[in-house]
Structures are given as structure tokens and as C-alpha cells.
């Protein structure tokens, strides 16, 4: 008797979102990235469509980090303080699918750089690389609202992702994204109800659901990752169940969370039982990312190139396994 794989029938699917615009589309990107479109749970391609593989965005800071552990300094120390060169290194050496540029320097406590300065940084990074960009504000609501008009304009028609719109601050970023043809990242504090509400607020402004990416504030392995996992999984189940206000692709910020964990930071002499710090730290980031992959994440924002390589290998191995089993 032949075995028939039991298959779940889903009503809905995740929206497909294209990031980046080529010259033909009004931008200057040499490549674009399309995420989402899943009509089943992660990697179950025998059951439904999974047209786009999850992608990795390398995070680039516009300020030289002062507290990064050694393995990260080894990878990026030579380009600290030069976001364009940093982005270029991620693309050329580490094969980044996207660059996630964080405009940290705009924060009032971290240099308070002006909207014009930030716009200039964005332009330089756009010139330095051909991959699409995710642009993240500094996290100070008031300052970000001053920042967006000029920063968004500097990248007009490049179809970047702008992050992030939150429940009590979503209007400026949404208006800028609509005016300049970008995608909005909606953020929620580990809360599916608030995520849905922000999506409604942003779409009411006029942003199309197909121009939204969702982000739940995440936690690292050992530091609340299970909450994030559960919420993301539930979000994906809602999308597959037909909930249009939770059908957007999901993004997870992995690098900064994983490298905050003491397991990634403690030197060998203080914790010899945990093995080599270099391996341990990279695995901590890779394992955190791996978990989010299985929760349904479409875009992983990562730090260490070796962790990113491991995760990419993992993604490709799942796809290969499902092709073989067909």
C-alpha cells in the first residue's frame, strides 16, 4: 500500500513583497529580493507553495561600535565607522542578500547627527552596493520623525524597507514610505494583538498590505526566544488561516540579540566548560536564527558572517531535502 502524506488545507497565504528596485523600475539596485508568498508552514513545500527562500540581511551601523566582542571586530574592524565600505564588504565578501543600515548616530544620546547627514550616509551606502536596503531609524520617536522625510527622499524609488512603525508612532514613516515608494516595517513588543493593530493603523494611512513587513521585538536563544517563536508561529498560522492583517512577511533581528547573551560574550577563562568563545558565540547567533527560520521568518538581520553562512547552508539543505523527497 502506498503512503499518502497527510496535508493540511490552508485558506490563506503570506503576501509576496519585493524589496529593491532596478533601473527599469525607477531605482538603481542591481538585484532585488522577493520574500513571502508561503502557502504553508516553513519548509513544508510538499504541502503548499514556498516560492521564496528566507533571506539574510547584514546589519551595518553608521557609528563605529565600541563594545563588540572580538569575533565581530575581526570580521568588521577594518570598516568600522565607514558604513559604505562596511556594506560593500558584507556584499562582496559575505554574499549579503540585503543590507540593514541602522542610523544609530542620529540618536540624541549618540551624536545626534542631522537628517542631512543621515541622508548622505544612505546615499553613500546605496552607491556602494547594488543589493536592496533596509533602513532603520535611531529608535527615538521624535528624532526619527525628523529624520524620515529627508532620509526616505534620499532613497526615493529604491523600494527600501523603512523601520519601524510602532503603535504610537507610525504616521510620518508611513507617509514617507508612500511618497517615496518604500516598504514599511511594522513593529510590536512581542505582542500579536499590537502587531495586528499597527498593521491596521498603517494600512488606514493608505499603505498597501503588500508594502508591509512585520517585526516582533525578538529575544535570543536562552533569553525569551520561545516567546518570540510562539508569537511568530501563531502569526503565520493566522496568515494561513486567512487573516489579511497578519499576512505580511516577517523579519527578525538576530545579531544584536544573540551577541548580547552572556554565552556569546563570556571569555573562555571565565567559562572554560562552555568551550571556545569564538565557536560558541557564532553558534549562539546561528541557532537563534535557525529557530526563527522555523517560526516562519522571511528576513533575518544578522551580524557575524560565519553565523550567516551556517544559516544559509541550513536553508539550502532544507530546500535540497524537499526536492530529493519529491
Amino acid at each position: 500500500m502506498s503512503f499518502e502524506m497527510p496535508k493540511e488545507k490552508w485558506r490563506g497565504a503570506v503576501n509576496q513583497v519585493k524589496i529593491g528596485a532596478t533601473a527599469a523600475e525607477g531605482g538603481t539596485r542591481s538585484s532585488t529580493v522577493t520574500v513571502g508568498g508561503e502557502a504553508t508552514l516553513p519548509f513544508l513545500d510538499f504541502e503548499g507553495d514556498t516560492p521564496n527562500r528566507p533571506v539574510i540581511a547584514f546589519e551595518v551601523l553608521d557609528l563605529a561600535p565600541t563594545d563588540w566582542p572580538e569575533p565581530l571586530v575581526e570580521a568588521y574592524g577594518d570598516v568600522f565607522g565607514d558604513p559604505a565600505a562596511w556594506a560593500q564588504k558584507c556584499v562582496e565578501q559575505y554574499e549579503a542578500d540585503l543590507i540593514c543600515l541602522r542610523l544609530q548616530s542620529a540618536h540624541p544620546d549618540r551624536g545626534d547627527s542631522s537628517p542631512a547627514q543621515c541622508a548622505e550616509t544612505v546615499k553613500k551606502v546605496l552607491q556602494a552596493v547594488g543589493v536592496p536596503l533596509i533602513i532603520w531609524g535611531c529608535g527615538d520617536n521624535e528624532k526619527d520623525n525628523n529624520l524620515w522625510p529627508e532620509v526616505s527622499q534620499a532613497a526615493a524609488r529604491e523600494r527600501c524597507c523603512l523601520g519601524s512603525a510602532v503603535q504610537d508612532n507610525y504616521k510620518t514613516i508611513s507617509a514617507c514610505a508612500m511618497a517615496d515608494g518604500h516598504v514599511v516595517i511594522t513593529e510590536a513588543p512581542l505582542d500579536i494583538n499590537i502587531q495586528k493593530q499597527v498593521n491596521i493603523l498603517v494600512t488606514e494611512m493608505g499603505v498597501k498590505p503588500e508594502d508591509i513587513i512585520m517585526y516582533q521585538v525578538t529575544g535570543a536563544l536562552g533569553y525569551g526566544v520561545e516567546y518570540a517563536y510562539t508569537i511568530m508561529e501563531r502569526t503565520r498560522l493566522a496568515a494561513l488561516g486567512g487573516d489579511k492583517m497578519l499576512s505580511m512577511p516577517m523579519l527578525a533581528i538576530v545579531g544584536s540579540e544573540a551577541w548580547r547573551a552572556k554565552e556569546a560574550r563570556l571569555p573562555e577563562e571565565e567559562s572554560p566548560q562552555w568551550g571556545r568563545r569564538y565557536d560558541r558565540a557564532i553558534l549562539w547567533e546561528a541557532m537563534t536564527a535557525e529557530l526563527f527560520l522555523h517560526a516562519g521568518t522571511d528576513i533575518l538581520v544578522m551580524w557575524h558572517p560565519e553565523a550567516a553562512r551556517l544559516v544559509k547552508e541550513s536553508v539550502l539543505s532544507y530546500s535540497a531535502a524537499s526536492t530529493e523527497s519529491e
Partner: peptide
């Protein structure tokens, strides 16, 4: 059967 949000009536009708 559906996910709550403050504007759940609007969400259903979107």
C-alpha cells in the same frame, strides 16, 4: 478563532 486587536471589527472588514 481570530486574533484580537483593538480595531478587530475594522480588521475583519478590511
Amino acid at each position: 478563532k481570530t486574533v484580537y486587536c483593538d480595531d478587530f471589527l475594522k480588521a475583519y472588514r478590511t
